[in-house]
């Protein structure tokens, strides 16, 4: 039997793999569902108060919202670069990328606090209108997630600098990165929904 024309053996494919702990993905799904309910509540409440929502939305700073979107997306990109650097055992560079991501996340908090200060000076509160109730509670709920994300990024930065992650042993870094990207993902719905669409 002639075996010289047998097909080449297929390259072994990598099995699908979740980047990070299963537990964080279950947590991420729960968080996304909670934000999803919040977004639906906003949209349906708006349907009964269209004129009010549209008028008060116009008073928000879309510049601040867009700047914060850029800061979060850039932080997410820096986190990806940190993970890629750690995969190649470039711990120092990974640490720099994470530090840059932390700076962007901190910038997000600063812009948001500036927005809140402006709102409070204008006597805007949770009880001033249905729109402001949603604007303050939704954005503050997200704000708290950014703070937690930053705490996680700082822990990852310390671990990266200690050389704790290597290709094949990236679980901790990937787990924290997945959480940060979730915070980013939620804002990608929140920004157009609350600041732009009317």
């Amino acid at each position: 039997m002639n075996t010289t024309h047998s097909p080449a053996a297929p390259q072994p494919a990598h099995a699908p793999r979740l980047a990070g702990d299963l537990a964080i993905w279950i947590f991420i799904l729960a968080e996304l569902l909670a934000f999803g309910v919040f977004f639906a509540a906003y949209a349906f409440t708006r349907a009964s108060n269209v004129a009010l929502f549209d008028a008060e939305q116009l008073a928000l700073s879309r510049n601040a919202g867009a700047l914060n979107t850029v800061l979060l997306l850039t932080a997410g990109y820096f986190v990806v670069r940190a993970v890629q650097a750690a995969e190649h055992a470039a711990d120092r560079i990974a640490g720099h990328w994470l530090a840059a991501a932390i700076a962007c996340g901190t910038g997000f908090l600063a812009v948001k606090m500036f927005e809140y200060a402006h709102a409070f000076q204008a006597d805007i509160s949770l009880s001033s209108s249905p729109f402001h109730m949603f604007y303050l509670s939704l954005t503050f709920f997200h704000f708290m997630h950014v703070i937690l994300g930053l705490v996680i990024l700082i822990a990852l930065w310390k671990n990266v600098r200690a050389g704790r992650y290597r290709l094949g042993d990236m679980n901790g870094l990937e787990t924290g990165a997945a959480y940060w990207h979730m915070v980013d993902l939620v804002w990608l719905v929140l920004f157009p929904l609350v600041y732009v669409i009317h």
Partner: peptide, 24 residues
């Protein structure tokens, strides 16, 4: 330096810097 790999962790899991930069 010896490259460490495991059967379930492909080197392309997180893409390339170039691709990430274009996406950003």
């Amino acid at each position: 330096m010896q490259k460490q790999t495991t059967p379930d962790h492909g080197p392309q899991t997180h893409g390339t810097p170039r691709r990430a930069t274009f996406q950003w």
